[in-house]
Computed example of a mutant assay.
Amino acid sequence: MLRNELEQEIKKWTRRLNRKLSNARSVDEHGDNLIENAEAYRKDSEHFFQKDPIKSFECLIWAWAMIEIGEKLGHLRSS
């Protein structure tokens, strides 16, 4: 039961992250690095989804944090 709920949350937040990443625009080199790392964490989340959903969710959190921090520090903007 808990695993199913976690998998549903992962799917929901993956959709949100995909939208956020598709609208994220880099302002500088730091922004480029943040987007690259966020996309890598998103891919890692996909990799871990079936085998270890907790790690999968953690990867999503890291990806989301990178985008949020990049926006707050002015390295990224939404289009």
Score class of each variant (00 low, 15 high):
residue 7 E to G: 00
residue 49 F to W: 09
residue 34 L to P: 04
residue 10 I to V: 03
residue 54 I to R: 11
residue 21 L to D: 02
residue 61 I to N: 04
residue 71 E to I: 10
residue 45 S to G: 14
residue 48 F to P: 02
residue 5 E to M: 13
residue 18 N to Y: 08
residue 9 E to S: 07
residue 31 G to C: 04
residue 44 D to Q: 15
residue 28 D to T: 13
residue 36 E to S: 13
residue 50 Q to V: 05
residue 53 P to T: 05
residue 29 E to H: 11
residue 24 A to R: 02
residue 30 H to Y: 10
residue 31 G to W: 03
residue 5 E to S: 14
residue 33 N to G: 05
residue 75 H to Y: 06
residue 56 S to G: 07
residue 45 S to L: 08
residue 16 R to L: 13
residue 45 S to T: 05
residue 4 N to V: 15
residue 67 I to G: 01
residue 20 K to L: 12
residue 36 E to V: 13
residue 63 A to N: 06
residue 73 L to I: 15
residue 35 I to Y: 02
residue 57 F to M: 15
residue 33 N to Q: 11
residue 19 R to M: 08
residue 40 A to V: 05
residue 57 F to T: 14
residue 31 G to K: 01
residue 26 S to Q: 12
residue 54 I to N: 04
residue 59 C to V: 08
residue 40 A to E: 06
residue 28 D to M: 11
residue 10 I to F: 03
residue 37 N to I: 09
residue 63 A to M: 02
residue 12 K to L: 12
residue 2 L to V: 15
residue 28 D to W: 09
residue 3 R to C: 07
residue 25 R to A: 07
residue 59 C to F: 13
residue 27 V to C: 01
residue 28 D to I: 12
residue 7 E to V: 13
residue 67 I to E: 00
residue 74 G to A: 02
residue 78 S to I: 08
residue 19 R to Y: 05
residue 20 K to M: 06
residue 17 L to P: 04
residue 29 E to M: 13
residue 23 N to D: 00
residue 74 G to V: 09
residue 16 R to K: 14
residue 27 V to Q: 02
residue 13 W to A: 02
residue 8 Q to C: 00
residue 40 A to M: 10
residue 13 W to K: 12
residue 44 D to V: 11
residue 2 L to E: 10
residue 13 W to I: 09
residue 39 E to V: 09
residue 66 M to C: 03
residue 75 H to I: 03
residue 21 L to N: 04
residue 30 H to F: 12
residue 32 D to I: 14
residue 22 S to E: 08
residue 41 Y to M: 10
residue 66 M to R: 04
residue 24 A to P: 00
residue 56 S to V: 13
residue 66 M to K: 06
residue 12 K to G: 00
residue 20 K to N: 00
residue 42 R to D: 01
residue 49 F to T: 07
residue 66 M to P: 00
residue 21 L to W: 01
residue 62 W to F: 15
residue 78 S to R: 02
residue 41 Y to G: 05
residue 8 Q to N: 06
residue 23 N to T: 10
residue 38 A to F: 02
residue 62 W to D: 09
residue 52 D to Q: 13
residue 53 P to H: 06
residue 46 E to L: 12
residue 31 G to E: 03
residue 13 W to E: 11
residue 65 A to Y: 03
residue 30 H to I: 15
residue 57 F to K: 14
residue 79 S to A: 08
residue 62 W to Q: 13
residue 45 S to Y: 06
residue 22 S to G: 04
residue 35 I to F: 01
residue 14 T to E: 01
residue 22 S to L: 11
residue 30 H to P: 00
residue 51 K to A: 06
residue 65 A to N: 07
residue 12 K to N: 05
residue 16 R to P: 00
residue 73 L to T: 14
residue 61 I to K: 10
residue 46 E to F: 06
residue 32 D to N: 14
residue 56 S to K: 12
residue 68 E to Q: 04
residue 56 S to E: 02
